[in-house]
Design a protein around this nucleic acid. Structure first.
Lengths: 140, 140
DNA sequence: TAATCAAATGCAACAATGTTGCATTTGAAG
DNA sequence: CTTCAAATGCAACATTGTTGCATTTGATTA
């Protein structure tokens, strides 16, 4: 997920969104992180943007499928950029979200084997898998 | 999970908890439901108990492994009684939580096949699987 | 059954998080 | 440069959950 400022503007306009400084800054923050980002982290970076605008910006990005909720703990929600395979309809078919209890980072993990979940007589729309444990970097 | 009032008292005392009217009422509410229960539903039932006491009661039950968080949406948390296989350490090894988008109920579902998740060099402590879709009753 | 005391509760106040309405500003198109 | 819908900032509010502290109560012991 490499995005220059110009590419970000193109992305925003392709979704019929104005390329405002706040939106560019939020997206820049997200792409700088390899792991998912909390609202408070976004707020910490965008100091000269109103709290309400940040909430609305995130909601807009969620609606347009630019970001997704990677992990929701009791305290905080973690957001991450969507990648190309990740439509707003089906985020989780072959990946999951991992919260490391050592470094507290949330990362998206791709699965090599697809997970098969069988629930007879149920219709499955969305599968969210959240795992907590110790990530590969902290294990090493 | 059949619990008479007397059995509930025994359960509470076995965890070194006093069998107060509020605790009995909260547990009675949970066992009356086949699906997981929200805080607001508990609050709706326990009208003569202070809000703060209900929060503390739920927290105590979580700590003691009597209930667990079945599902956490943006708006609400769903709680459910723990069954016998379900220690406070490892809730989710062979079951998942299903949120039906038709009837809005959250239910625990047992899996016939254990799910195998492979993440090389990671240490997995807890696996939460949340599925949204249409449950067997609403499909019928 | 009465006395005792830690545990549990109720109340008030507070904190954090997120939302809504509305006036003002601004990005992008002509 | 003008125009206008979209985006923003501000104020006020709603919801959710927490903390401190005085009072009450369940369970134990005498």
């Amino acid at each position: 997920m490499e995005l220059t400022t110009e590419e970000t503007k193109v992305l925003l306009r392709s979704r019929k969104l104005k390329a405002t400084p706040t939106r560019l800054e939020v997206l820049s923050t997200l792409k700088k992180h390899t792991s998912a980002v909390t609202f408070s982290e976004i707020q910490r970076v965008c100091t000269n943007t109103d709290r309400v605008t940040l909430y609305r910006t995130i909601q807009t990005f969620l609606d347009k499928g630019i970001i997704h909720k990677a992990y929701q703990s009791e305290e905080e929600t973690f957001y991450a950029l969507c990648n190309h395979n990740c439509s707003s309809e089906a985020h989780f078919h072959d990946h999951l979200h991992f919260k490391c209890s050592t470094c507290d980072q949330v990362t998206c993990q791709q699965l090599t084997d697809e997970i098969k979940i069988v629930l007879p007589n149920f219709k499955i729309n969305k599968v969210d898998i959240n795992i907590t444990g110790i990530c590969n970097r902290c294990c090493a």
